[in-house]
Simulated assay, not measured.
Amino acid sequence: MALSTLHNVRFAGMASCVPRQIVSNLEDCPLSQRSERERLVRNIGIQTRRLCAEQQCFSDLALIAAEKLLDDLQWEREEIGALIVVTQSPDYLYPATAIILQDRMGLPQTAIAFDVNLGCSGYPFGLHLLGSMIAAGGVKKGLLLIGDKTFKVKDPLFSDAGTATALEFDTSAAPMHFDLNSDGSGFRAIIRTVGGHREPYSQEHLIPQYDEHGNPYGPDYLQLDGPAVLSFSTQRVPPAVERLLSYAQVSKEQVDYFVFHQANRMINETIRKKLSLPTEKVPSTLQDYGNTSGASLPVTITARLHETLPSKRHQLLLAGFGIGLSWGSAIVDMEGAKFPAMIEA
């Protein structure tokens, strides 16, 4: 188990940006499927989702969030020493989206910029990666941009978002504690099989296919093994959270909020109940924003806690889990951080 602690890293702020386009899961289906969709919505807890405009990328949203955060922090672009982008929705297969954003944001050429290919578990991993660079002393200020754009717009689960998190070197900062894990034996539970070197695109993938309801599908779409994901999430996440609390010597009562990846209502409620957490300590954005992949932790913090957190010192436990399979948790002190309100673009 990958338990670790980072010192001298301050959580400086967070901003989130979502598309203006709102899609209703109850209305975005034929009338003949309405009763079936209503049952699905009750189970997954997602009523509306946010979807990018046709030519809008995740990076466009993340850029807006980052620029708002830098303005609120009054950081100069020349101060940024690292830019890490965590996404499965890059602008291009290559080069890395972080390299493109480095230029679009006007960051110095001395800034380290690279992508990380992770989805729903990505936030704790990205936080640890950027935090480690800052703790080592080479980077004084850095940005972590996380988000995704939905590939299959008719999927009732997923939404689009772009987020920015700012970390800086500070010898007086409270320690950050992490527990990060991976299990590649379950890689097929969440997978898009076509498009890589293992199975390149071919002419057969261009032939449209439709299910019994007339919805498009195919091997180049995301394939999700629901029962496997449910089992993984509810069996791995609760003990990992307990392990991190024990390692950090922090009680559940000392944690102000537990923020979990917004997978679906069934998974999240099972995790909450297994950990015996009160609902008021577990904010949710599933109903309004859906599953925003790796961005779901910052989206939930921004949507539900941006007015509460600046008022005093708060300690949060953040847990992301999903594709890989991978899962990670972090205990972070949010004292004095900036949290702009949700941005729509």
Rank of each mutant, 00 (worst) to 15 (best):
A2C: 10
A2E: 06
S4D: 14
T5E: 07
T5W: 00
H7E: 07
H7P: 03
N8M: 03
A12I: 01
G13K: 01
Q21V: 02
S24F: 14
N25W: 12
P30F: 03
R34S: 15
E36D: 10
E38W: 15
L40T: 14
N43S: 14
I44C: 12
I44V: 11
I46K: 08
T48G: 08
R50I: 01
L51N: 03
C52G: 00
E54V: 07
E54T: 08
E54I: 09
Q56E: 15
Q56P: 10
C57G: 02
C57I: 01
A66N: 02
L69C: 01
L70Y: 04
R77D: 09
I80F: 09
V85W: 10
T87H: 10
T87V: 05
S89Y: 01
S89E: 03
P90E: 06
L93D: 07
A96F: 09
A96H: 13
T97P: 03
A98E: 04
D103F: 00
R104N: 11
L107E: 01
V116H: 06
N117A: 12
N117L: 09
N117R: 11
N117G: 07
N117P: 12
C120L: 10
C120P: 05
C120Y: 05
S121I: 04
S121V: 01
F125A: 04
F125N: 02
G126Y: 01
G126I: 05
L130C: 05
G131P: 02
G131M: 01
G137S: 11
G137I: 06
K140M: 06
K141I: 01
G142W: 06
L143T: 03
L144S: 02
L145W: 02
G147I: 00
D148I: 00
D148S: 05
F151D: 15
V153Y: 11
L167Y: 00
F169K: 12
T171K: 15
A173N: 02
M176P: 03
H177I: 00
L180S: 04
D183W: 04
D183H: 14
G186N: 06
R188C: 10
I190E: 03
I191A: 05
V194W: 03
G196C: 06
H197W: 13
Q203W: 14
H205L: 10
I207E: 14
P208E: 09
Y210V: 11
E212L: 14
P216F: 08
Y217Q: 13
D220M: 12
D220E: 14
Y221M: 08
Q223C: 10
L224G: 03
F232N: 07
T234H: 08
R236V: 08
V237K: 02
E242G: 03
R243V: 07
L244F: 05
A248V: 08
S251C: 08
E253D: 12
E253A: 13
Q254Y: 12
D256S: 10
A263T: 10
N264K: 11
E269N: 11
E269H: 14
K274A: 10
K274E: 09
L277W: 13
V282D: 08
T285W: 09
Q287E: 15
G290K: 08
P298E: 04
T300I: 08
T300Q: 11
T300Y: 13
A303R: 12
T308I: 15
T308V: 15
R313W: 07
H314E: 04
L316F: 12
A319F: 04
G322H: 01
S326A: 15
A330S: 09
I331M: 00
E335F: 08
E335R: 07
F339P: 06
P340H: 13
